[in-house]
């Protein structure tokens, strides 16, 4: 077992142990925080596929986080109001079933990522960053100015979506659902990075010309990665809507894109458990320092700076050392 695997397993156990301990000590707030870590980590795992493995610096993943959230929010609120979502050409009802909401969120975010990715990937470098940002901002302003679902004020959902056989309103149960999904997307990431596709994606990042000369279009590989990436971040958005029982245009804002990127960078770009380490550190800092000083964001900025300058592997790199061979 490599040192990185040990660190990863320790992190997963810690994320599991903290809310279980909090359950016994009757600290529901800590369970909520742990759930938030798991959800943010899923969002980061999504971004890591584009950013870490694909080298695609997306500054617009808030678009997918928000779309996933609104997909969940709109489906649930329509169901609660007993109003069909669409009446023509056929009737589609809202739903509060996670097992329906998740696939819907995945499909919507996949489609959005296909469009955004196809346009953004025609450019490179700083233009790619700006175009992904521009798309997310467009959706942000659309969400603000669209009154049907709360506009600027956001949309309250009142209930938490249901999962067959589970009481999702129980904090520890909802945490367990998020944790299981986190493990699932991490498992998928492992498979992806070692697969044929993962090899092609890594080559596309390192040297697109290499891929071209063996007859594979880097564009198609990167676009596929971007779609997968957007879908996973969208799933996190749907869970986040359920956690807060509320969605607002803030989910689409560039702050959100920045935060997801911060999780990945803090934890270690392209490191499997980087997003979890980063999200955990972020939430810890927010709640430890945020209680003491208003300037915690400033300290976060300093920390980011240090990591970018001196510890490119992020937290995982510090704990587990450099990356071995592929």
């Amino acid at each position: 077992m490599t040192r990185e695997t040990t660190v990863n397993i320790a992190l997963a156990i810690a994320l599991l142990a903290v809310p279980i301990g909090a359950q016994f000590a009757d600290h529901p707030f800590i369970i909520t925080l742990s759930t938030k870590v798991a959800i943010f980590a899923i969002a980061g795992v999504g971004l890591n596929i584009a950013l870490g493995y694909g080298g695609l610096i997306s500054f617009g993943h808030a678009a997918f986080f928000g779309l996933g959230g609104y997909a969940a929010g709109i489906l649930a609120s329509q169901a609660l109001n007993y109003e069909p979502l669409v009446t023509w050409p056929f009737e589609i009802q809202g739903t509060t079933q996670m097992l329906i909401i998740w696939p819907v969120a995945l499909c919507i975010c996949g489609a959005a990522a296909l469009v955004i990715g196809a346009m953004s990937l025609r450019t490179g470098g700083v233009y790619f960053i700006m175009i992904t940002l521009a798309f997310a901002q467009m959706i942000y302003y659309f969400a603000i100015s669209w009154p049907a679902y709360g506009g600027e004020d956001g949309l309250s959902i009142y209930v938490r979506s249901k999962f067959p056989g589970l009481n999702t309103l129980d904090p520890i149960t909802f945490f367990a659902i998020c944790f299981a999904l986190l493990i699932a997307v991490l498992g998928f990431s492992v498979l992806l990075t070692h697969s044929r596709f993962g090899l092609a994606l890594s080559a596309a990042r390192q040297n697109p010309q290499r891929l071209t000369s063996v007859g594979v279009r880097p564009f198609q590989v990167q676009l596929t990665a971007f779609v997968i990436s957007g879908m996973i971040t969208g799933l996190a958005g749907a869970l986040y809507a359920d956690l807060n029982r509320f969605v607002s245009p803030a989910m689409f804002s560039w702050h959100t894109s920045g935060e997801i990127m911060i999780f990945v960078i803090l934890g270690g770009v392209g490191r499997l458990f980087g997003p979890l380490a980063g999200a955990a550190l972020f939430i810890l800092l927010e709640h430890l320092l945020g209680g003491i000083t208003e300037f915690w964001q400033f300290l976060l900025g300093m920390l980011l700076l240090l990591i970018v300058l001196f510890a490119r592997g992020g937290l995982i790199g510090l704990l587990a050392g450099g990356r071995g061979n592929v």
């Binding site: 498979l191 992806l192 070692h194 697969s195 044929r196 596709f197 993962g198 090899l199 092609a200 063996v214 007859g215 594979v216 590989v221 596929t224």
Partner: peptide, 13 residues
């Protein structure tokens, strides 16, 4: 790239 597709996501190369 020659033997089939690169769009396989699960099996380790």
């Amino acid at each position: 790239a020659v033997e089939g597709s690169v769009f396989r996501f699960f099996k380790p190369v």
